[in-house]
């Protein structure tokens, strides 16, 4: 191996890498969908009057946040079969990455909910609204706009963390680049292209998140 960029090879492998990019985007999208819902569950569970539940969820969120995602992916993938539950790499990967990011998103939601002024809660109580209505109609709509920046950052974050799924054999971008590299004994082009593809998606995505946030703020008159 020596350093000489091979354009022919580049164009030969580019379609394969772009196909894998679709997988990466699907993985990020699915993982994020799980995280958005589960994160809200985690956030709301921490606001129930049941002390033991609040405490447990708080600790679980802390635990997930302070341990490496790659280790969690291995854990979910390998521990299942030990107890007779076989998970495909995709399923295990989505559970692990979704769970990991739901812990982060729950913190984002929590910040958003806590930012809703106390008067709003009191007004709901004064109007005799049910807890469900209070959350669904008053609190969550107000908690979302300040959460958008954080949510957007974690969307880009989950995208950048999908390469870790390659360790259990999910055929995403890095996994494909590894395969191409070892088939051809050339790593320069595949790895560099992976880097460029990531930049080409995450930089505009980060910019878009900022624009979207500004737009929501303007729409709500903030």
């Amino acid at each position: 191996m020596r350093f000489d960029w091979d354009w022919e090879f580049t164009f030969e492998i580019l379609p394969r890498l772009l196909a894998a990019t679709v997988n990466t985007l699907i993985a990020a999208g699915l993982g994020y969908a799980i995280a958005v819902v589960l994160g809200l569950v985690f956030a709301l569970a921490q606001r129930t009057p049941v002390r033991s539940l609040t405490f447990t969820v708080r600790e679980v969120v802390e635990f997930i946040r302070s341990t490496p995602l790659v280790l969690q992916i291995f854990f979910v993938f390998y521990v299942g079969p030990q107890f007779g539950v076989r998970l495909s790499p995709w399923t295990a990967g989505m559970i692990a990455i979704g769970l990991h990011y739901s812990a982060y998103l729950s913190e984002v939601y929590r910040g958003g909910i806590e930012a809703v002024p106390k008067g709003q809660w009191e007004a709901c109580r004064a109007l005799n609204m049910s807890t469900r209505d209070t959350y669904l109609r008053i609190v969550i709509p107000q908690a979302l706009p300040p959460s958008i920046a954080g949510m957007g950052n974690y969307l880009v974050g989950i995208f950048k963390d999908t390469p870790m799924l390659s360790v259990i054999g999910v055929a995403e971008l890095l996994h494909t680049a590894n395969a191409i590299g070892s088939e051809n004994y050339r790593f320069l082009e595949p790895y560099t292209l992976v880097g460029i593809i990531f930049l080409a998606i995450s930089l505009p995505a980060a910019g878009f998140v900022r624009l979207f946030e500004a737009r929501v703020r303007r729409k709500l008159g903030l």
């Binding site: 950048k160 390469p163 890095l174 992976v194 880097g195 990531f198 930049l199 995450s202 930089l203 980060a206």
Partner: peptide, 11 residues
């Protein structure tokens, strides 16, 4: 910031 740590590591 725009690429993955794992990609950077391999690179």
């Amino acid at each position: 910031r725009g690429t993955s740590l794992l990609v950077q590591l391999f690179w």
